[in-house]
Design a protein around this nucleic acid. Sequence first.
DNA 1: GTCTATAAAGAGATAGAC
DNA 2: GTCTATCTCTTTATAGAC
Lengths: 186, 186
Amino acid sequence: MALPTIDDDSLAASLFEVFRCRGYEGTSISLLSEVTGLKKSSLYHRFPAGKDDMAKAVVLYVSSQLHTYIIGPLLNDKQVPEQRFNTMLTTINSFYHEGKKNCLLNVLSLGEKKKEISELLNKDYSDWLDALIKLAKDAGLSKKEAKIRSEHFLIAIQGALVIQRLINNSQTFQNAMEYEEKLFFK
Amino acid sequence: MALPTIDDDSLAASLFEVFRCRGYEGTSISLLSEVTGLKKSSLYHRFPAGKDDMAKAVVLYVSSQLHTYIIGPLLNDKQVPEQRFNTMLTTINSFYHEGKKNCLLNVLSLGEKKKEISELLNKDYSDWLDALIKLAKDAGLSKKEAKIRSEHFLIAIQGALVIQRLINNSQTFQNAMEYEEKLFFK
DNA sequence: GTCTATAAAGAGATAGAC
DNA sequence: GTCTATCTCTTTATAGAC
């Protein structure tokens, strides 16, 4: 009883790869159709509100990944903060393909704002930030310093992704992350 | 003898505002026509190669601004490094409208690469980086440390712009820049 | 739930008058 | 150098058969 159709998660994963590479405006339904193997009308059947709906599904998919693989482990009290941070670095290195892939937080917040998508992205950022702040406090930092360093780290991720894409140097992201790790616990 | 038409620099400035807000794919010729007050065919008259040509003109325009108002003053030996850095902060704060406007280095390096534009953006980044490295060495840092801190600072600019756009908090960029200034000279 | 076919609007781009 | 008018292709989206 083979599945006659691609399941929602795999579908979202395929859409995600296109949106993260090309941004919202740069992504066409035709391209999504090619990549997923579903005809355009099938995509509309599964996402009745159209392209916005597809982007939203992608954001929800990534949000779920973020909470499962990054935020969850960040809050795992059974490991010391340094270990948890290091686990996060490994995960994001893989998630961003060593810095060669973009972050939705950047590419989908460009241009005309779709309010609902902005709010979802915002919430993800905020959740990630809160988890980092908690970790930093666990590591002994003051509340204020924990907040500053956590914001700084998330800024560094986004910036390093932009710069690596710009100069096309495959080491930029990883080097930056190693540097940030030292700064975070210094 | 009033000018019958908008001059090249003002035109590029208008195009720039659209491209920086909406990115390459999000910018349509119709919109550029509205914003500049020139009909579409007039735009094509001035940019025969079309949209790519317009984007290229924007990059060249911004590159000129970057060298005049940022890189030049960074290399001005008559001021101490701290003063020069501070001048740069004031300038970029204005250039990015206190962090509310995007950087071309981010928005134009998305999606399908136009090779020529990528190379121009790359050169601008590289020039800016070199000027910062020289300044850092003037401030007494080792060559290696100068390079690391300069890269880190340019990463922080891009990251702070992304995060401010994302969370729509008008203080993010300025706070980040103040923090980075301390890190740079520490 | 997927498909073929098609509609309607918008995109980038060009021709030719003034 | 700018304009009106138009072309062609692609876009988002829908209708209806299977």
